[in-house]
Amino acid sequence: MADGLIDILPSLNDGSAVGGPLYVKLQRLIENAVRDGLLHPGDALPPERELAAMADISRVTVRKAVQGLVNSGLLVQRHGSGTFVAPRSERVEQSLSHLTSFTEDMARRGMIVRSTWLDRGIYAPSPEEMVTLGLSSGEKVARISRLRVANDTPMAIERAALSIHVLPNPELVTLSLYAVLAESGNRPVRAIQRISAAILKENDAKLLQVPAGSASLNIERISYLESGKVIEFTRSIYRADAYEFVAELKLGDSSEISGAVL
């Protein structure tokens, strides 16, 4: 049990806590306890009833505070066991200035990469795929979907679509898509990425081993050949607690900005 948390809970109502609703104050107390080392990864929180009694607040307030921290990934709940401080995962930084594959990027960090295949096949394109990839009526797309894992930590879900003229056999992709494209002279040289914050749905959260409702970074990437032809249309979902994107910005006009988030 986290004795350090028990010591600071009475401060919730003594005027020393930062203002705001009580559930927000409790969240901040718990967040600060984790940051200051009073709570460690794997530590169990007192039961809801005990937390409410120690802080002199209602169980509804405790429940709301704890659920918010579960959704943010700071806490995890295990059925029949209780609520615990979540394991701490090292964030991976990804530059927005360079076009690299997940495999290449993780390898540079000395991380062991593997994939769990969710789908590899040939399909009729969706209207969006037809427009983005410039496909004519009757053409097919190759789709590859996989869970990307680095050092045994699920990092991202990637779902890519390419013309079958570029990737006639999706089964050829065993590790790096870009390595396969390079062999046929179709590796992209630039891309436009759109990044947005989102909340994970249950199925994707289960794949990434985080609670449903956790935050994610969703990326839509359209990649181009040197000729300007679109070669790849990919949508990826990254764990927000394990991945962050870094951009270098230079003062000046728009032509001097490198790695801007669109």
Score class of each variant (00 low, 15 high):
E104Q: 13
E104K: 10
E104H: 08
E104S: 14
D105P: 07
D105H: 12
D105Q: 14
M106K: 13
M106P: 07
M106D: 00
A107P: 13
A107M: 14
R108N: 04
R108Q: 06
R108V: 05
R109S: 09
R109E: 11
G110T: 01
G110I: 07
G110S: 08
M111L: 12
M111D: 00
M111C: 07
M111T: 00
I112T: 12
I112W: 06
V113A: 12
V113P: 06
R114I: 11
T116Y: 04
W117T: 02
W117Y: 03
L118Y: 04
L118E: 12
D119F: 10
R120D: 01
R120M: 11
G121R: 08
I122P: 12
I122G: 09
Y123R: 11
Y123P: 03
A124C: 04
A124Q: 06
P125A: 09
P125G: 05
P125Q: 05
P127G: 01
P127Y: 01
E128H: 04
E128D: 09
E128R: 05
E128N: 03
E128G: 03
E128P: 01
E128L: 11
E129R: 02
E129W: 01
V131D: 10
V131G: 03
V131E: 11
V131Y: 04
T132A: 10
T132H: 01
L133S: 02
L133D: 02
L133P: 04
G134A: 10
